[in-house]
């Protein structure tokens, strides 16, 4: 487990990897939703999840599902940083025959638990994994499922929300990366999925709402979820789409984008400055 400053550093390393994966040669990638998830992923992989990168099927592991699978490059980044595969593999993302597909693929990428990205389905898969953990008495383990707030429009999310409460899955933690933007603009102005906390409470979940870029708040929320019995916990993580790349922050245009050379250099320079600062500590 890493300390909080290491986790902050990891989050910016994820951002750096994501920017490099997108590059500036015409390829596109989901920059906005990857950057909004960076602290969530960094706290999970760096500070919470039990796993062994060299033994991805290790029985004692916790399970992680990135239901917002379009931001797969962020998951690949954190997995590479944690040692699941060499970092060089990141630069092959979406190449023909690559182990890193546009959306997570369990057969191609060791450590990916299940395919996600047809939005709305990850939480149901997580329910299945949580049921197995109960059946097989892995009581110390948890399933963490990161969803998008645009994804909240998918009806299956709420089917799974009911199922998780029905089965009293206190070993299941949902995390909503609430960056307030979907592909075409502000969620509130398009198909309003708010209010979220009230909805999840109404469905019977334990709800924790926090700043999704606050590493300590995230770690505390996981701890609170771990010790909340009898029902599942959802963490509404308020985030900024494109966080950490100033020109992309809060802009739907960077949901799935390519980068000009200038944008690329600016983005890397901003992230590198923070990495240099954090590395001093």
């Amino acid at each position: 487990m890493q300390n909080t400053s290491e986790i902050r550093l990891l989050a910016d390393k994820i951002r750096r990897d994501v920017i490099q994966m997108i590059g500036c040669e015409g390829q596109t990638g989901h920059l906005g939703g990857s950057c909004s998830s960076a602290e969530i992923l960094a706290t999970l992989y760096g500070g919470r999840l039990k796993f062994k990168p060299d033994d991805p099927k290790w029985e004692g592991r916790d399970k992680f599902l990135y239901s917002k699978g379009h931001a797969a490059i962020a998951q690949y980044a954190v997995m590479a940083e944690m040692g699941y595969f060499p970092k060089e593999k990141l630069w092959t993302v979406k190449q023909l025959g690559a182990m890193l597909q546009g959306h997570p693929d369990r057969l191609k990428t060791p450590g990916v638990e299940a395919g996600t990205g047809s939005l709305g389905q990850g939480l149901s898969i997580a329910v299945g994994m949580a049921l197995e953990m109960k059946l097989d008495k892995h009581y110390d383990n948890r399933v963490y499922c990161v969803m998008g707030d645009g994804e909240m429009a998918e009806g299956q999310i709420w089917e799974a929300a009911m199922a998780a409460v029905n089965f009293k899955l206190d070993n299941l933690v949902g995390i909503v990366d609430r960056n307030t933007l979907q592909a075409t603009g502000f969620i509130e102005e398009r198909f309003n999925t708010n209010p979220l906390s009230e909805k999840w409470k109404g469905f019977g979940w334990h709800v924790i709402e926090i700043d999704g870029h606050d590493v300590n708040a995230l770690l505390d929320a996981y701890e609170e979820a771990y010790h909340t019995p009898g029902k599942p916990t959802v963490i509404i993580a308020n985030t900024v789409k494109g966080k950490g790349v100033s020109f992309a922050e809060g802009k739907a245009a960077f949901h799935n984008c390519s980068l000009t050379k200038e944008q690329y250099d600016t983005a890397l320079a901003e992230v590198d400055a923070r990495i240099a600062e954090l590395s001093k500590n």
Binding site: K63, A114, S124, V127, M129, L131, E159, A160
Partner: peptide, 16 residues
């Protein structure tokens, strides 16, 4: 909730 059932089954199957 048939759709949810199949995805849940997928989660169970992915867990052995």
């Amino acid at each position: 909730a048939e759709a949810d059932m199949i995805s849940t089954a997928a989660g169970l199957a992915a867990s052995g």
